[in-house]
């Protein structure tokens, strides 16, 4: 069986619950603390989703404004963090629709299958054998971030929530109001898309870190 890459967030959630309940019961002076807790995470979510810093800043501001507006009605049925991201994700999707971007491209699984005539590696590529912390230098981080930006939005948002932010399949499905099966399909295609770009980068452009 593969090993789990996920960390528990139970402690953060219980801290959030106490803080949110205090604000709901009238301690609105504590709202700044809630904002400080999540402004960096949300700003980075915005940067990855929106492609530019100014839109990411607007996303953070709009999200915290909406959270303040609707916090009284939050019933703690989901974790606060998941509710926060649901508001932020919805703001992202609405903004994109307002800007009338071209419709999202669909990634087909067949595009990523090795063809009968294709030449594929019989060896494990060297880049997968290097510890991740050594492999992920500044240049690769930039390549990866740029590549995430080129994913069509419906795949990008799933890849960000699952692989960057660390939400589970079930949590991501609830945040985006889609089925868990749909999350799995989009995530697999997003990973295959990113994997192909990284493969290309390592095969053509890259000097490996010294090990």
């Amino acid at each position: 069986m593969p090993t789990s890459p996920r960390k528990s967030s139970t402690k953060n959630n219980s801290n959030d619950t106490e803080l949110v309940q205090a604000i709901q019961s009238g301690r609105i002076d504590l709202y700044q603390e809630l904002v400080s807790r999540y402004e960096r995470k949300l700003y980075n979510f915005g940067l990855r989703m929106c492609r530019n810093a100014s839109d990411a800043e607007d996303l953070v501001q709009d999200t915290f404004l909406n959270v303040f507006k609707y916090l009284k009605g939050f019933r703690h049925e989901a974790k606060f963090k998941n509710w926060l991201y649901k508001i932020a994700a919805s703001a992202c999707i609405k903004k994109r629709r307002r800007l009338k971007y071209a419709p999202d491209q669909t990634l087909s699984l067949e595009d990523f299958l090795p063809g009968d005539e294709a030449e594929v590696a019989r060896e494990i590529p060297r880049w997968t054998t290097i510890p991740l912390d050594q492999l992920l230098n500044e240049e690769l981080a930039e390549v990866l971030s740029d590549t995430i930006h080129t994913l069509p939005e419906k795949y990008r948002i799933v890849a960000i929530l699952r692989d960057v932010e660390g939400f589970s399949t079930a949590e991501t499905a609830k945040i985006l109001d889609i089925t868990p099966a749909n999350v799995k399909v989009r995530l697999h295609r997003a990973r295959l898309f990113l994997r192909d770009k990284l493969k290309n980068y390592f095969e053509h452009d890259h000097n490996y870190p010294s090990t």
């Binding site: 402004e39 997968t128 912390d133 690769l140």
Partner: peptide, 22 residues
């Protein structure tokens, strides 16, 4: 090879550092 490259891709995404808030 496909499994290992996919696993590494997901692992790299999980380790992208966050930018500071302006």
């Amino acid at each position: 090879a496909c499994l290992e490259t996919l696993k590494t891709t997901a692992g790299l995404c999980h380790r992208i550092e966050e930018a500071p808030v302006p």
